[in-house]
Design a protein around this nucleic acid. Structure first.
Lengths: 181, 181
DNA sequence: AATTTATGTAAGTAAGTACTTACTATTTTA
DNA sequence: TAAAATAGTAAGTACTTACTTACATAAATT
């Protein structure tokens, strides 16, 4: 098996276990077994357990968030939130396990200078709302509503796409109504 | 120092560290130091680290949730949700760190037969809504809205009581409006 | 003052865990 | 088919960690 393939395979196995039992609750031996290789091979591909975690969460840490900024700068109009929200929340919904892991391991990631995921999401949402022309007061209300929506998608067992889209539509109406009041 | 006092002191120190660094990320030696005692003394009061965790989260695990059921059965009218929500969310807000810990350590607690905190909250909220006469569809919407509210209080850094009460009021209006539509 | 009760000290045990080294075997590629 | 890359085996190292034992000391209770 080629280098890259094996790395992917190890990452996949590791993330599955990290999500299930947390970073500290997972051993490198368990990861190796899950990936059906030996521990020695694992350490030939990654120099440490930490490196596996960081590489595993990296794509989410960057792509999931940054995308929203670009979209918001290219779009306009009052359907903006809905399209952005729908887009972002779909992404969040698809990667909810990794994101939950990132929240779970926040203290560890903070030690490594990559913590505060929640604050970064809040910053992005705040910018979005400000660009829409929301006042300070509306901002508070809408911000909590949006954050609550994201968190509910992360933590509620019901991941039905239709239901979520439906909910986003209603939430968007409420926010737009509030801003244009 | 008396037995009970010391137990409390150890629990307090332990919970502080568990919240900061997670259960597995905290050692019994660290707990002892935080409580300004020796590790031996710690193990004279608790037979295991696990026992400390379970005893530490127990009050929240039971009181925070069960209370809501009783209130809901004794009250009536359309201000019901607001008073219940306000009450429960204040409690959640005050214990948000422990609750976050419970969510963080869900896999560990599941092994000990005490997991699925989210599902238990959802059950309670669902009952509440059904008693109010919400339809299946409203139920879905309101349930997500309520759960999102709780989660936002848990995870957003802004814990301003006024702001939260304000938000709850608005959310309540939206739900009542949706149900009586 | 004598007895209990609670704590500290010092040392240790047994198990786990991230990570390494040296050597051999297999698979892939040229 | 020979060279190069990848993987397994076996053993081990160095460190951490939950928890224990034995003994001495201090504080509280009677």
């Amino acid at each position: 098996m080629k280098k890259e393939e094996r790395r992917e395979q190890i990452l996949e196995a590791a993330m599955k276990l990290f999500v299930e039992k947390g970073y500290k609750g997972t051993t490198t031996l368990q990861i190796a077994k899950e990936a059906e290789i030996t521990e020695v091979t694992l350490f030939r591909h990654f120099s440490s357990k930490q490196e596996i975690l960081l590489e595993g969460i990296e794509p989410i840490l960057f792509s999931t968030l940054e995308g929203a900024i670009n979209i918001s700068k290219e779009s306009s109009g009052s359907e903006m939130i809905e399209s952005i929200l729908s887009d972002r929340i779909t992404l969040i919904s698809k990667n909810y396990q990794v994101i939950k892991l990132i929240l779970m391991e926040d203290s560890l990631l903070t030690e490594l200078g990559r913590g505060n995921f929640i604050n970064r999401i809040l910053e992005i949402l705040k910018n979005l709302l400000t660009e829409m022309g929301a006042s300070e007061e509306d901002n508070k209300f809408a911000l909590r509503l949006l954050m609550g929506t994201i968190l509910s998608v992360l933590y509620m067992p019901d991941k039905n796409e239709e239901d979520i889209k439906d909910y986003i539509g209603k939430i968007t109406n409420i926010i737009v109504q509030e801003i244009n009041k």
